[in-house]
Design a protein around this nucleic acid. Sequence first.
DNA 1: TCAATTGGTTTCCTAAAAGTAACTAGGTAT
DNA 2: ATACCTAGTTACTTTTAGGAAACCAATTGA
Lengths: 127, 127
Amino acid sequence: MANLTVGENCGELQVALDIIVGKWKPIILFHLMENEKLRFSELQRAIPEITKKMLTSQLRELEYNDIVHREVYQQVPPKVEYSMTEYGHGLTPLLVSMRSWGTEHLKHLKELHGEDNEEQEGKAGSN
Amino acid sequence: MANLTVGENCGELQVALDIIVGKWKPIILFHLMENEKLRFSELQRAIPEITKKMLTSQLRELEYNDIVHREVYQQVPPKVEYSMTEYGHGLTPLLVSMRSWGTEHLKHLKELHGEDNEEQEGKAGSN
DNA sequence: TCAATTGGTTTCCTAAAAGTAACTAGGTAT
DNA sequence: ATACCTAGTTACTTTTAGGAAACCAATTGA
């Protein structure tokens, strides 16, 4: 992981970030945090906008990182269940903290900029 | 912000994520957390690999979100100082927690996969 | 007169992330 | 015989993030 050399101390933060960024990972994780076990198709139904490809790839990355467990039942039609690992549950407090901070920040932003301008959202629009 | 409708409860997490993702934001934030005030050029020197364009855009987003303050001195050659806002300091615990978690996770990954395979790093290499 | 200074902006380009849609296996129900 | 089911994979396209390099303005110092 090349970014480890970037900063004196922030490579580790990137490690944490890498696990939860990816447009779909947070919502996948919250569903798994709330549900104990979910089949592939249940996740698909819970997150209708996600494609199979994305769901698969995000789950595989989470599996690689030992955050979720993948249980394959040898039967037809196939059945695969996903669940948080014991280790993965250690991520929960962080996720919850981030969500709380985000909730407060939304309010803060509305006070600052008003809730009208839904366009720019801080991405410094030009370029 | 379209993602607010994605999940019942994870849009807020995305809000938090949006602020700290971006290849350079964490390191910028850590420098500002440690330094009280830094000029644009000091940040450039502190993070040599970053381009002006990236530094500018990341700082602007942080400024929009009231995390950093931008102070312009009307003089030539220009002088601009960046610092964490009071509000921005509220982000520090989260950043520190994420870094800690990342540090531990690196160890965990090495136990699982060994420290040899530096290639894939969980991005599920095929496609 | 001309280079050096700072804090940018602008245009163009590449690489990575994400989306679309078609295809697959193998057993079951019609 | 054929359509349907699940949990994917594959090939291709679009979108977004990020990078390289040139340009700029106003003043100072040589």
